[in-house]
Design a protein around this nucleic acid. Sequence first.
DNA 1: CGCCGTCGTGTGAACGTACACATCGACCCT
DNA 2: AGGGTCGATGTGTACGTTCACACGACGGCG
Lengths: 346, 346
Amino acid sequence: MPPEAGKGRAPNIRDVAALAGVSYQTVSRVLNDSERIRPETKQRVLEAIEESGFRPNQAARALVTSRSRTIGVLSTHQHAHFGPQTMVHAMEVAAAAAGYSLAVVTTGTTPASIVEALERLQSQAVEAVIVVAPKVSVFEAIEDSSLDLPLVTLDSSIHNKRPGRTHSFAVDQYEGARMATRHLIELGHRSIIHVAGPQDWIEADERMQGFLFELGEHDLSVRAPILGELSAEFGYRAGLELVRRRDFSAVFAANDHMALGLLHAFRDEGLSVPHDVSVIGFDDVPDAAHYLPPLTTVRQDFAAVGRRSVEIVIGAIDSGTLGELELIRPTLMVRESTAPPPSAWR
Amino acid sequence: MPPEAGKGRAPNIRDVAALAGVSYQTVSRVLNDSERIRPETKQRVLEAIEESGFRPNQAARALVTSRSRTIGVLSTHQHAHFGPQTMVHAMEVAAAAAGYSLAVVTTGTTPASIVEALERLQSQAVEAVIVVAPKVSVFEAIEDSSLDLPLVTLDSSIHNKRPGRTHSFAVDQYEGARMATRHLIELGHRSIIHVAGPQDWIEADERMQGFLFELGEHDLSVRAPILGELSAEFGYRAGLELVRRRDFSAVFAANDHMALGLLHAFRDEGLSVPHDVSVIGFDDVPDAAHYLPPLTTVRQDFAAVGRRSVEIVIGAIDSGTLGELELIRPTLMVRESTAPPPSAWR
DNA sequence: CGCCGTCGTGTGAACGTACACATCGACCCT
DNA sequence: AGGGTCGATGTGTACGTTCACACGACGGCG
């Protein structure tokens, strides 16, 4: 008999039970592989399931258990780049392995749209939430929205301690920024500019803090960072402006896209990287190794963050409590966009 | 009374009904905004909903209607780039506007993993499927898996007509490839190489076909295309190889990442783009305008594809039939990586 | 030798909603 | 004036599953 060949209605556990000659409850037990079931009975039920093409009805299951086995992911499109994409994919895989599904909701960053997104997640009865939009306003919206669910935000808030129930986990942005800055300093740079991301983005702020701290450690003076969006376009404009100032020998960009824009601007203005000026990025997107010149940058293991975040929230669902969250260390990828400063700067 | 302050149990329509002094059925009618309900009654019910913090239980609703209001998206990580990301986001927005949710499942491209992904989608009771992994093997797996759902694949299969129930929709890759090729020809190039993507990817094949057709139109001879993955890394290796041959004045890369790798290789080998050789890409990723030199490429409106694909499947859910699917035209973005060939090539 | 615990399985409810139908009053038309 | 229609709301039931509990058989133990 071909599966799914029935009378329109999908088979349910009673059909399976009849086929196997047992009660529906026995089928249910097989489905939830409880003990207390004779191996041969189990076998018979499994065959009946196979033969009937039975597929458990998630809605019915969710209704009676009031568990959706779904994890909500709140993401933002503004940041629709390599990192989030990689993290969400890793979450998907990890969730599937644990028998969970993902409900991904993308949103803007206005309070209204975040509240609306949380509504959508709640109406999907998610059991936990992972937030990939680490923005201050997002946290505020979450705090306001009195939702009572395990919630993890993917950021490394060392200098952005927040009250309330939000826990965070991520690659250590602060440490990454320190690594990048230290690398430039060790090459001999004394005048370093930071082209930073929007400061209401936690990670951007963490990178800035790490940068400032490391400068302080080496008694280097701080030039005002340039603030803008994390795009190549902004990096380009910032680069054009920087060329006019010429009061630096190295630039630490808050991400690789910005760094690409900087490379473009410097090139347009006749500055050679790394001969005249060094540039370092952040993220290590796959393209970074093929920028001109290949970009020195800080690699984040996004996949690990995604995987781990799912483990964390599932642990929280089961135990009701978030464990200790240890940040992941980034690694420095030295390529060709950094070099010792020209002699005039030593 | 604060919402959600109850006794553990979430309020249901009966609670709301009691609060409003009506029957639960009346509440149900308000929820599904049917007519035949007196405005003042409706108002009273809405207030009761507000006061109780009631939120409809999707599981119960899905159980009784046997409709999940969920659209499944089958995506592949191998292609975890700008295009899919943008499309999925647009789908999300469009689906939400129509009262649907998305269930995104990412997968490898082996038959086994695709079957498994389809299983997962079916177990989530999706009402339609959008496939963002336009690979031949994916279609075969779909055909095998006797799933009886509206299904749209996001590709432009002109030269890959397939049997069965799979309909396709996308930006016209064939036309885009023709536009790119024509642009090079109009600049005066007679010897053009195509660095192609994997030919079991429909879009990669369509681009190749468009390229070949346009060459034929102008009686130009065809050099063997180079086949590989759609990454900067592969573009770089292909570029190194091409430099040794030197039997071309222009390269059409199957996507922007590949083009970036080519730029890198040519630069490494002392070839100037576009002076010595022209390079054109495909996609117009946001970074492309800041490559060195800024990349001439073919822009696809991914967001439109995402939006439209959701409209299409929702239409199919409602009416049971897919409408006519008209491909979206891409646009040529001329920047600085293409120029007339050096005199030796004229 | 009878009692009780355990194993394996079955029976009755309940989850929260929507659909089909029933009810009840008011209004219209002849 | 009375039957029919329609508009507004209420009542019963079903969806497919799991949980709590009941039940019979079997074995060990006092």
